[in-house]
């Protein structure tokens, strides 16, 4: 089944964030419909850092090509804020699709995009729309999905989010709208909006504290993209694994 059809048929689709071929393989074998090769997890694995904006698009697409060497499992890729303006967005989206992306996520942050909540700044909505049009125009396969990620609810509040959602959906600017960078304080308002509008949620399980006490999957979101979990888990497992080689004297 094509990814677009999966999203259309399911009431809620869960996508798990990955960082490389191994973690994508884990997600595929676990039965999920797609993996999300995202900046945060890739930067943690490749650079040992936590700022997604440190990776460049050609490095990301090279990682994707490794992931896609092994099969046809759908991989959605994080194009962040397009790594520049509409022009760069066009070429980044084109390169990601040609490298095997089943879908591309574009957010409305200023370049370079950031993971930390207090480092995020937003572009004008009109510029975001222009980037979405550029990304869509670059696709060669009509089945390639475009995800529009709205990261600025802390700036434009729930009402601004609602207006943006409405505009994007009425004008069919993306196949699926996602909302990311939701703070603990704003989670209830965003979840409430999900009862009347169709959109997905992007969660960073390391950063987003609401994941500790909220059943995110049952809030009515069209999709939930979980990032951070696998890179965090890998690092924890690695720490446990290397401990066993230390002698008692070294400990």
């Amino acid at each position: 089944m094509q990814l677009k059809e999966t999203f259309a048929q399911a009431s809620m689709t869960t996508v798990v964030g990955t960082m490389d071929a191994q973690s994508t393989d884990t997600v595929e074998q676990s039965g999920y419909p797609a993996a999300y090769l995202n900046g945060y997890d890739v930067v943690r694995a490749e650079l040992g850092a936590t700022n997604e904006g440190l990776i460049s698009p050609s490095e990301l697409s090279a990682e994707l090509r490794h992931v896609k060497e092994r099969g046809h499992f759908p991989v959605v890729v994080d194009a962040q804020s397009g790594f520049g303006n509409q022009l760069t967005t066009y070429f980044v989206a084109q390169d990601l699709e040609r490298s095997g992306a089943a879908g591309v996520v574009l957010n409305d942050q200023i370049f370079p995009a950031h993971t930390a909540q207090d480092e995020v700044t937003m572009i004008e909505f009109s510029d975001f729309v222009a980037k979405l049009k550029a990304a869509k125009a670059s696709f060669e396969d009509p089945e390639t999905m475009l995800f529009a990620e709205l990261d600025g609810v802390q700036f434009y509040q729930a009402d601004g989010l609602r207006k943006r959602l409405q505009y994007l959906q009425e004008n069919q600017l993306a196949d699926c709208v996602l909302v990311g960078h939701v703070s603990q304080d704003q989670f209830a308002a965003v979840a409430d909006l999900a009862h009347s509008a169709s959109f997905g949620l992007v969660v960073n399980t390391v950063r987003d504290t609401f994941t500790a006490d909220q059943d995110v999957a049952s809030q009515g979101f069209k999709a939930v993209f979980y990032t951070g979990a696998l890179s965090e888990a890998r690092q924890a497992a690695e720490k446990r694994a290397v401990q066993q080689f230390l002698t008692k004297a070294e400990v």
Partner: peptide, 8 residues
């Protein structure tokens, strides 16, 4: 025109 990025 800014198409070549840091990786390349």
């Amino acid at each position: 025109r800014g198409i070549a990025d840091f990786g390349l």
